[in-house]
Nucleic acid binder design. Structure first.
Lengths: 231, 231
DNA sequence: ACCTGAACACCGTTCAAGT
DNA sequence: ACCTGAACACCGTTCAAGT
């Protein structure tokens, strides 16, 4: 049913062989993503993942460090797959390209996005975007120190934006016309003057438009910072 | 042992009366925060919270909508307590003041911060900061549309930053000298030239300094946006 | 080297009964 | 109106045994 079209960059494509004892870390991660796509992160249990593989839950412990390790592995698998196009030297092109690559990968399995965005922020699987951002800033003339600060700011902003994008998915968005109306009414009942004034706009949420605004604002900020660094 | 000094703004102070049937939504939220402070969000279960109150776990269902509703209530309780100082009319003062108020409240119970920052991003308990930000931007001359976009960007950036601040708490930070060294070594082993160059700076993380950088960058961005809006 | 049966100490939640 | 006993269908994880 959920037959996701784009699987990882892995070798094996379809669902892993059931019943056969073909267990491997990769197969387990794939099976977990199958569960996540179907039932969300909350649906992941050692037992539910094992069921997909036609195997006993305890067998997973031979390949993965408990449930926590399993979820880490999933986050790492997704983060590790970020592939960034070569730099052009123009920040107005390269910054959006890096952000897009990260976003695309993080939203590959929307239900898994919170995992990718909140777990392992300190991990080293997600270093590709950091390397690209650092390279961009350094060759634009920023100091190493300024570059590191700026990279952290950019990553944090992007993560915050994507986290809301994912959360807003079902609840807000254009899809749910009644939800928007109800939401607007709640906002208007808040008694806060500026919230009331902005209620029609606060009630709706266009994911792509919000993302583009974030990237554009971030780009402007970086350009400003680079200009200041040069002076 | 964990005797947190600053409790909420609630009326009752100490631990709720044990054994007595004094159950109430507020008492349950307080008890949950006690568990969170001691054992983290992962330590929260209907049974562990009930144990703090000297009550059967099932009794909680009379006041709270399951475990999910309980965690929502905790997030709302914390978010609802944000109190923002009156505006001065100077963005360079007011924006940091709003951010500080939000941060202070979100980090009141550090272990509960992920709850506050990720749950209920669409909630209406956290409207006070939104109202303050909208007011600031509108009276600075931004259109309603631009103000809404900007508020979303600012909130997302702040949430992303605070989320990392909380995550970085135990692992990075100044505290763990060996951790920093190990982390630096890993970065240097990545093979990524700019990551290697920046490794000493990437390895350490000063929470307050990073937060200040975020607020300052955000302030600069807003000032720039306001200037553009006027022209 | 890897899989599993037995086992343990947990979970969230419903519902009918009690007071 | 609110609390609980009995009950159900789950959890994660260990360990000793099997192959």
């Amino acid at each position: 049913m959920t037959r996701s079209t784009a699987a990882g960059a892995g070798v094996r494509r379809g669902r892993p062989p059931r019943g056969a004892s073909q267990l491997s870390r990769d197969a387990i991660v794939d099976a977990t993503l199958e569960v996540v796509d179907a039932d969300g992160v909350a649906g992941v249990s050692m037992r539910s993942v094992a069921r997909v593989l036609g195997v006993d839950a305890k067998s997973l412990y031979n390949h993965v460090d408990g449930k926590d390790g399993l979820l880490d592995a999933v986050a790492e698998h997704l983060l590790g797959g970020v592939s960034i196009p070569p730099a052009t030297g123009d920040i107005r092109v390269d910054l959006p390209a890096i952000a897009d690559a990260f976003r695309e990968r993080a939203l590959l399995h929307p239900e898994a996005a919170p995992l990718v965005l909140t777990r392992r922020l300190a991990s080293f699987e997600g270093l590709a975007p950091v390397e690209a951002l650092l390279g961009m800033l350094r060759s634009a003339g920023c100091s190493t120190g300024e570059s590191v600060h700026l990279v952290r700011f950019l990553v944090a902003s992007l993560i915050g934006t994507l986290l809301r994008e994912v959360q807003a998915g079902p609840t807000l968005g254009i899809s749910d016309q009644d939800g928007i109306a109800a939401r607007q009414r709640t906002l208007e009942d808040s008694g806060l003057p500026h919230v009331i004034e902005a209620a029609p706009r606060l009630a709706r949420f266009d994911r792509d438009a919000e993302y583009r605004y974030t990237v554009q604002a971030a780009t402007a900020l970086v350009l400003d910072r680079v200009r200041a660094s040069r002076a």
